[in-house]
Amino acid sequence: MPEIVVLSGKGGTGKTSLTAAFAHLARGHVICDLDVDAPDLHLLLQPTPRRSETFRSGHEARIRAADCSRCGQCVDLCRFDAIRGDDPPVVNARQCEGCKLCVALCPQAAIDFIPRHCGDWHISDSRMGPMVHAQLRPGEENSGRLVAILREEARKLAGNLGRGLILSDGPPGVACPVISSLSGADLAIIVTEPTPSGRHDLKRVTALTAHFKIVTVVIINKGNLNPEQTAGIKSDCCQRGLPVLATLPHDPSVTAAMLAGKTVTEYTANGFSAELQAAWTGIQRHLNTVARKE
C-alpha cells in the first residue's frame, strides 16, 4: 500500500491546503492528518466521526491535599518546575512529565499517579474518502506514538476497504512526530516557500528524508513572492537530486477556498488548480517509479 506524506518543516507554507487539494484530486483514498498538535485538514474536509477513541499515554502526578504534610520536598525535587505553592503544593499537569520521582519519594505517600488523557483520535467519513485524524490536548507531549497509531489505523482501514493509497498531511517541524510519520512511507512531498525560513527548513527536512532513504519531491508554493529565493531553492534541489514538481504562485483563491470550507481545486478551476492537477500527475508518476523498484 503506497503511503504519501506531505511535509514542510516550517508551518504556513500551504501544506494543508495542498494536501486537501490532492485528497480531492485523488478522491476515494484514505486520508490521514498526522498533525495531531494543530490539525487543520478537517476544517477543509469536514469529516463526520464514525468511531472515536481516547488516547492515553503515560501518567501524571496529583497531590492529595488531605494527606499532604506540606513538607515541600516534591517542589524541590521536580526538575520540570511542575509543582508550585505550599499549602498544599499543586502539580501543574501541563508541565508534569510523569517521571514518578515525587510519587516515589513523598514521605506521606500523598501523591497519586494517574493515567494521562492526552487526546482523542477519530475514524471519520469525509467527502474525499475515509479519514483518520486526532487532536492532542493542549500542552501534551507529542511523542510520535499517536502519529504511529493513526498510521496503523489508516493502514488497517485502507486494507479493509481496499483503497490503493494513503495520503497524509504530515506534522510540522523535523522532530519525533515527523520521524514517526516517515517510517515506512513511500514518498515524501515537501511544500516549501521562497522565504529564508522556508529554504532553511527545506534543507533540514530533506536531510531527514534522505536519512530514511525516502523518495522525495518538492513543491515551491508562493514562488512569485521572491523569484530570487525561488531560484535558489531550485538550485538547492537540483544539487541534491530532488525534483521540483511545481512552482505555484501566491494565489488568493487558497484563502478564499479556506473561508468557504472547500479545497482549492473544488473551489475554483483557475490556473492555480490546473497547476495543482499537473503536480498531482507528477506525484503519481513518481509513486509508480517507487512501486516498480519495490
Binding site: G11, A38, D40, R94, Q95, L136, G139, N142, P172, M258
Partner: peptide
Amino acid sequence: PGVSCPAVNAVMAADVVVLVTEPTP
C-alpha cells in the same frame, strides 16, 4: 509553534505571551 510540550516549556516563565494569528479558519 504549536501547543504541545515544547511550546508550553518555552512560554512557562514568560510574563506576557503574544499569540500571533491570522484571520482565517
